[in-house]
Design a binder for these strands. Structure first.
Lengths: 140, 140
DNA sequence: TATTGTTATACTCTATAACTATA
DNA sequence: TATAGTTATAGAGTATAACAATA
């Protein structure tokens, strides 16, 4: 058991907090470049992978299903997403990215340089060590 | 230059994304335990360190100063913060944590077990390696 | 004139509860 | 009855623009 006042642990936690802050900033900036909010960008990224029932989107975003209605509404109004019927269950609506939605999702991903830039300073060996430490930290 | 499709880099990025998500969840949960929103908790934590002009709070949160008015209003309504005049500049209002605000900030910090738990799996040696890698990643 | 904080406004996200159409 | 999605509502965070007090 490591006390929170342990200087080393405290510094690691501070560094993680910095990573978290920078990650969020970059994500919001990348989304804003495409006139998307963070939530809209997250949903569009999900839909670009595969069409999803509204409820599944809510589970991924850890929010109430009622919120997804508005987010998909706004994506749909911009021609980035559409609702399709589910052939197996007429209660379900499958939200899916349109062609333009897919293109936007790709460009959004390219904007997310958080991946490339900070990791570029690390060698393959170091990235491997970092991966293993993060895995263990996350209880993987 | 590391391509984003490099499997190792991709996995590290995914792990970081997981850390970010978990950090946020824990932070929101800890704040909610004290009936605070994330933004209110952030501001209260800042004010518990030292009184700050409204504008400085906005800079720390990277948002517009006008938003801070409402957040401090809500903290003030709950007796956790107060506005004081700045003796040096009568335009400035210094937001400060009240005694109860300080107590709440301390308990909030204790709730943030994100520090202890995941790091507990790592030895001192490993924490040191993690610290150095994060430092270099962040360009320190 | 410039700066600090506030107000007014509009938009988005969020949770809760009630509603509809299906199952 | 139960489930999927929606609507209605209210609260909070956000940016923008205009404002009063002070520098």
């Amino acid at each position: 058991m490591v006390p929170r006042t342990d200087p080393l642990s405290r510094e690691v936690v501070d560094l993680i907090a910095t990573v978290v802050a920078r990650y969020h900033e970059e994500y919001e900036d990348a989304a804003a470049k495409h006139a998307l909010t963070g939530a809209q960008a997250k949903v569009l990224t999900l839909l670009a992978r595969e069409p999803l029932p509204m409820r599944r989107i809510a589970q991924q975003l850890r929010c109430e299903p009622s919120n997804i209605t508005g987010i998909v509404d706004r994506l749909e109004a911009r021609g980035l997403a559409e609702r399709r019927p589910d052939p197996d269950d007429r209660r379900v609506k499958l939200a899916a990215a349109t062609e333009e939605g897919h293109r936007t999702a790709v460009r959004l991903g390219e904007s997310l340089d958080f991946a490339r830039e900070p990791l570029a300073s690390l060698s393959t060996r170091e990235r491997t060590v970092l991966r293993d430490l993060l895995r263990r930290m996350l209880g993987g």
